[in-house]
């Protein structure tokens, strides 16, 4: 009961009295635009969205040299080549490690920090919030050189740890702000009630608050995963060893070759897309509720 009230604040409550006789004017309510005004622009936009996806699928599945617009007969040659000859198997493994580690680290650190920001007033809070906001303006790409020197000092060049740390750090500020907003949406009184029942602060948080944070955490965590899965510059800079590289770097290598093997590039692209598309399909619904709950309000 509590769960629903606290989290699903977004959808308007069902109209108290459903009035059966709907006057003609009601049909022109905002909700009910003429159908063609929805389907026509949506259809046009879908073409723009889907043609590129179809195109890469086409190149990945049809034999090299074919100009057919239908990928038939289907061939898996490009996938086999890219997975073994071009080491995408290794890259995939590395990317998964980086993505999952970044997800876990970002979520845990941001959860701790977000809780502090949501529930306490402390001396450096304002300064800390300001630092979080300012860090949004710091271009990670422009800190490549000093970051490289730091990781060289720590002997972490060519280890996935460097990329994981760098990705986590740049995901943290936004994640923390979002999570603290999610926590603020959970009434403090729920936690206090749990204390009275004999829970300590941590247990109260785990039992009462954490379950309510699910949509928000899913949004933040998948953000971190997708972002680190996709991001390219840190891996390009910090990982020189081919055994350690990630999928985006592999794609870039394929693209910058003198004569681009289009089939291999397309197959590599599909391999890069599959995990994020799956994650996305799974979280899409949470993303919207998650964001609307964590929206920064004023």
């Amino acid at each position: 009961m509590i769960t629903k009230e606290a989290v699903v604040a977004a959808p308007a409550p069902a109209a108290a009295v459903p009035e059966p006789p709907r006057p003609a004017t009601k049909r022109r309510a905002w909700d009910e635009a003429p159908r063609w005004q929805i389907y026509l622009p949506l259809g046009v936009y879908l073409v723009f969205t889907l043609v590129p996806f179809y195109w890469i699928l086409l190149f990945a599945l049809r034999p090299a040299g074919s100009t057919s617009l239908v990928p038939w007969p289907v061939t898996s040659v490009h996938f086999e080549k890219v997975w073994t000859d071009r080491s995408f198997g290794t890259f995939f493994h590395n990317s998964v490690l980086v993505g999952v580690a970044t997800l876990i680290m970002t979520t845990l650190v941001a959860l701790a920090g977000g809780y502090a920001l949501a529930r306490f007033d402390f001396k450096v809070k304002r300064a800390f919030m300001l630092a979080l906001l300012c860090s949004q303006f710091v271009p990670g790409a422009l800190l490549l050189v000093p970051l490289f020197e730091i990781f060289a000092e720590l002997q972490m060049i060519n280890s996935l740890g460097s990329v994981i740390i760098a990705e986590t750090v740049f995901q943290l500020p936004l994640s923390m702000i979002l999570i603290s907003n999610f926590i603020k949406n959970v009434p403090y009184s729920l936690e206090e009630a749990a204390w009275v029942d004999g829970c300590n602060r941590f247990r109260a948080f785990r039992v009462v608050v954490l379950p309510l944070l699910r949509p928000g955490l899913i949004a933040v965590g998948s953000f971190a995963f997708v972002h680190s899965w996709n991001h390219f510059l840190f891996a390009l800079m910090f990982l020189n060893n081919q055994e350690k590289q990630t999928i985006p770097v592999g794609l870039n290598t394929l693209m910058s070759a003198d004569s681009v093997d289009l089939g291999a590039l397309a197959a590599g692209g599909i391999i890069a897309a599959v995990p994020v598309v799956i994650v996305f399909a799974f979280i899409q619904k949470w993303l919207i509720t998650g964001f609307s709950a964590g929206a920064v309000k004023g």
């Binding site: 394929l254 693209m255 890069a272």
Partner: peptide
């Protein structure tokens, strides 16, 4: 379904976007 489809490029990386459009613009 419409939402899922039109939002899907959001999850695609810059490098992959490049790869796709390199194929389209070839």
């Amino acid at each position: 379904l419409g939402r899922a489809l039109v939002f899907s490029p959001w999850a695609v990386s810059g490098v992959l976007t490049s790869a796709i459009w390199v194929l389209l613009y070839n």
